[in-house]
């Protein structure tokens, strides 16, 4: 529990992912502060879903997420189209494997 004057120190940040009732995948919708996962889930229900039925919510402590660094973007996501040796196109496709 948070001691008086400690502010939000005892309330870590959580990231919230919601899958709508007819949605196919969980989408990141935002973040919130909560003392633990249970309350993070309940707060997310109030803040992001208005308690609609049939939605699925994931909460993840922000500290558990490892993000790719913007500085390394070039190295991470450089299009590899120009690296022809990465593409397995140097052999003939056998007959009868039309949909390879």
């Amino acid at each position: 529990m948070t001691a008086p004057g400690e502010g939000r120190a005892g309330w870590p940040l959580w990231e919230v992912f919601v899958r709508a009732r007819r949605g196919l995948s969980h989408t990141h919708v935002g973040s919130l502060h909560a003392p633990d996962a249970e309350l993070a889930l309940r707060n997310a229900r109030d803040l992001y879903t208005r308690r609609q039925e049939g939605v699925s919510i994931w909460v993840v402590p922000a500290g558990a997420i490892t993000a790719s660094s913007p500085d390394e973007k070039d190295a991470f996501f450089e299009p590899s189209a120009d690296k022809v040796y990465r593409h397995p196109t140097f052999y003939p496709v056998p007959d009868g494997a039309a949909h390879l």
């Binding site: 309330w11 502060h33 309350l39 707060n43 109030d46 308690r51």
Partner: peptide, 11 residues
């Protein structure tokens, strides 16, 4: 006591 609790109580 907290912003999230404010929303919950109002709800």
């Amino acid at each position: 006591p907290e912003l999230e609790e404010d929303v919950a109580l109002a709800n």
